[in-house]
Computed example of a mutant assay.
Amino acid sequence: MIAKIIEGRSFGGCVGYVLKKDSEIIYANGLRTDSAKTIVQDFNFQRMLNPRLGKAVGHIILSWNTADKDMLNNDIMISSAKRYLSKMGIRHTQCLMVRHHDRKHDHIHIIFNRVNDHGKTISNSNGRYKSFKACKELNAMYGFKQSEGKQNVNRGRLKGNDRTKYQIYDTVKAGIRNSKNWTELQNYIRYKGVEMQFKYRSSSAEIQGISFSKDGQVFRGSAIDRSLSYSQIDKALNGIDNSKELYYTPFTDSPASLSADNSIGKAIGEVASALFSIPDIVPEQEDPLIKKRKKKENYRLKR
């Protein structure tokens, strides 16, 4: 099981999309399900308890692997979805679960109100991290097949930001396989239309993170995939080759390798200094007696 999290502003648009042909309402809480119109009315009525919240529409898609098809039914989907929502901190609010039958893989759409029954906002902080953790725990609990990653995603069905993210993911992954250092990776992905930018810790040259951009859209590496964080890419590149040829700024090699290079350079500099440095010349000291005679002679001449 995997989850996709979406937020929006219009309950009417979301409900209208979810309640389409080949859909089935399998669970509802705090809503009249007579029609799409009554569902939207109830969502909007509770929304007015906190009118300042713009994106009050919570929308989550839970999808299962085709290998799980024989073990799935409405009860299992509802049970796992409720546990998922609880782990996400989504409680005491209106909720609608709709099952779709238009794909090979089973999936349900969950629409919930981010304004809870008490007029409080349901937090979306760290939502994607919590979702990943929740799915992993529920897959183990129910015996669902764990997703094998982005390789099996149907790229042809992706749109908007998701399409761009996967294009960046595929490009950077190919770049890592074909590059020996950061410069080669940067050149490869730039040729493919992707740019990367480093994020530096304030008032220092220490790299804190990385982001990628394509067609005017910018994403943090870790937001695209955990394997595209700065530390993970650096490990992958250093595992291939430790070549350190860089021609661009601010692109730099890993701080650890630069420290090693600086140590070697410092040692060479010290040896060169010892071999080729010119000693300071100290003026020869004049004999005190000669100095005294010169002083007397100068005094006599002045008289």
Rank of each mutant, 00 (worst) to 15 (best):
residue 4 K to I: 03
residue 12 G to I: 03
residue 13 G to Y: 04
residue 14 C to Y: 02
residue 15 V to M: 01
residue 16 G to L: 04
residue 19 L to M: 12
residue 20 K to Y: 03
residue 23 S to L: 04
residue 26 I to L: 09
residue 29 N to H: 14
residue 30 G to E: 00
residue 35 S to V: 07
residue 38 T to P: 04
residue 39 I to N: 00
residue 44 N to E: 15
residue 48 M to H: 10
residue 50 N to H: 07
residue 56 A to F: 04
residue 59 H to I: 06
residue 62 L to Q: 13
residue 70 D to R: 14
residue 73 N to F: 05
residue 75 D to G: 03
residue 82 K to M: 15
residue 84 Y to P: 02
residue 85 L to D: 00
residue 94 Q to I: 04
residue 97 M to F: 07
residue 100 H to W: 06
residue 101 H to W: 15
residue 103 R to F: 11
residue 103 R to H: 12
residue 109 H to K: 11
residue 109 H to S: 11
residue 126 N to T: 07
residue 128 R to H: 09
residue 129 Y to N: 09
residue 132 F to Y: 08
residue 133 K to S: 07
residue 139 N to W: 01
residue 139 N to K: 01
residue 140 A to T: 10
residue 140 A to I: 05
residue 141 M to R: 07
residue 143 G to Y: 04
residue 145 K to L: 07
residue 146 Q to C: 05
residue 148 E to M: 06
residue 151 Q to M: 07
residue 153 V to H: 06
residue 158 L to V: 03
residue 160 G to C: 03
residue 160 G to H: 13
residue 161 N to C: 04
residue 167 Q to L: 10
residue 172 V to Q: 03
residue 174 A to S: 12
residue 182 W to S: 01
residue 186 Q to M: 05
residue 189 I to L: 12
residue 189 I to W: 02
residue 190 R to S: 10
residue 194 V to Y: 01
residue 194 V to D: 00
residue 197 Q to N: 08
residue 199 K to N: 09
residue 199 K to S: 13
residue 200 Y to M: 12
residue 201 R to C: 05
residue 203 S to C: 05
residue 205 A to T: 05
residue 207 I to W: 10
residue 208 Q to G: 03
residue 209 G to A: 15
residue 215 D to C: 09
residue 215 D to E: 11
residue 220 R to M: 08
residue 226 R to A: 14
residue 229 S to D: 02
residue 232 Q to A: 15
residue 236 A to P: 02
residue 237 L to K: 05
residue 238 N to M: 11
residue 255 P to W: 06
residue 256 A to C: 05
residue 258 L to K: 09
residue 259 S to M: 12
residue 259 S to R: 12
residue 263 S to Y: 07
residue 265 G to L: 14
residue 266 K to C: 07
residue 273 S to E: 14
residue 274 A to P: 00
residue 276 F to P: 02
residue 277 S to K: 12
residue 279 P to V: 02
residue 279 P to H: 02
residue 280 D to W: 08
residue 280 D to N: 10
residue 281 I to P: 09
residue 288 P to G: 06
residue 289 L to V: 13
residue 291 K to E: 09
residue 296 K to L: 15
residue 298 N to Y: 13
residue 299 Y to F: 10
residue 299 Y to M: 08
residue 301 L to D: 09
